[in-house]
Simulated assay, not measured.
Amino acid sequence: MEAAQETPDRPPLDQGALGDAGFLSAHGIAQLSVVDSTGSTNADLLHGVSVDPRAYPDLTVLAAEYQSAARGRLDRHWEAPARSSVSVSIVLRPVNAEGRPLPTQSYSWLSLLAALALREALLETAGIPAELKWPNDVLVRGKKIAGILAQLGPMGDGAVPPVVLGTGLNVTLTAAELPVPTATSVLLEQPATVDRTALLKSYLSRFATLYRSFCNADGDPAAGMAGGPSLHKRVEHVLTTLGKQVRAQLPGDHEIIGHATRLDDYGSLLVVDAGGHEHVVTAGDVVHLRPWTPPGESGGESGYA
């Protein structure tokens, strides 16, 4: 078993299965391309929607076997071996069933929606239980397995400002190949499969279903969607950040330490500090802290994980 993890099998994505007309049409995917190598799928699509917007309609998908200049939040750079990850970006032009653009304030939910879709794909395809970490990470047993980055594209002709949503999922990275000790991969979590094609198809199908339901609800996170609870409730249910003591690192070298209580209507994290003041965290990194007991209390927070 150790030898298998040292040199995992890394076949290419099955472009025939991904490009199947039936699969694409069933999920409203406009087009899907796979490239062998690129700097960044997000950067490629952002450039594309800038140069020729009409060539990149809603749900245009670009996947890469290898990225040399992938970036995450706060311009963090990472690089993974070829064919070891699912690296995919999607162009989104959010409109409802009547073609009316969604309010741009609803865009803040798109990365959480993507994380939710990826969580479902991991559970149902690989049998891996995952949770979400605000604002855009997917964790398995406390370790990061995937990250998501949403970037706003140019207004262009003034119709609908596009969003490019990038997802990076560690699939066959070995322990030695992980970027940090707090990361993990599908391979390392006793999966039912490490088939990247199956994982990508599952993710795209679940994302498309949730996304279309969200758009048809005019971007209302409190509306029931896809035959079940609202996006707001679904995300809060699997958001491991809630109930934790956190340190929110904000732009401008500011930070807040407190108790993460809930999400507001815009997907922002609400954090209550030691003085009882509630702060709205709209952007920035959040670190989950170890359990602590406030002064004068006895084990008041000992139940935290």
Rank of each mutant, 00 (worst) to 15 (best):
A198F: 03
A217I: 03
A183G: 04
E236T: 13
L210Q: 05
V180H: 13
A226Q: 07
N216G: 00
P191Y: 00
Q249W: 06
V246D: 11
G252M: 13
V194N: 12
A217F: 04
P251T: 00
C215Q: 01
D220G: 03
R206V: 11
L187M: 10
R234N: 12
R234S: 14
R234I: 09
K233N: 05
K233L: 10
A217W: 08
P221W: 10
A198T: 11
H237N: 13
K233D: 15
Y203F: 14
L210G: 03
C215G: 04
P181Q: 08
A222H: 15
P191L: 00
S202Q: 02
P179K: 06
L200P: 11
R247Q: 15
F214S: 11
D253Y: 08
F214C: 02
H232C: 09
S202V: 04
S202E: 12
L188I: 10
S185G: 15
D220R: 10
R234F: 03
P179R: 03
R247S: 13
V238W: 08
L239G: 06
L178H: 00
V238H: 09
A198G: 09
K233A: 10
P251F: 09
T193W: 08
L199Y: 00
T240V: 14
Q190H: 15
Q190C: 10
L210T: 00
S230C: 08
A248K: 00
G252Q: 00
L231F: 11
A226V: 08
S230R: 13
L242G: 14
G243T: 04
Y211S: 02
A183M: 07
V180A: 10
P229S: 01
V238G: 13
V238M: 03
S205H: 11
S185E: 06
S230E: 13
P181T: 01
L242C: 09
V235S: 05
H254P: 01
P181S: 08
H237E: 14
Q190P: 07
D253E: 12
A248R: 06
V194G: 05
A192Y: 09
T193K: 03
T182R: 14
G224A: 12
T240G: 12
E177R: 04
A208W: 01
T193H: 03
E189S: 07
L199P: 04
T241R: 02
A217Y: 07
G224E: 13
H254S: 13
L187W: 00
R196G: 03
C215N: 01
V186K: 01
G243H: 01
L242V: 05
R206D: 11
N216P: 08
L199S: 11
P221Y: 09
V186C: 02
D195T: 05
A198I: 06
T197V: 12
V246F: 11
H237I: 06
V238R: 08
R206M: 07
R206Q: 11
R196S: 03
D220P: 02
A192S: 11
L178A: 09
G252C: 13
T209G: 06
A222I: 07
L204T: 07
P181G: 08
V235R: 02
M225W: 02
G227P: 15
A208L: 13
G243K: 02
V186M: 05
Q249L: 14
Q249Y: 06
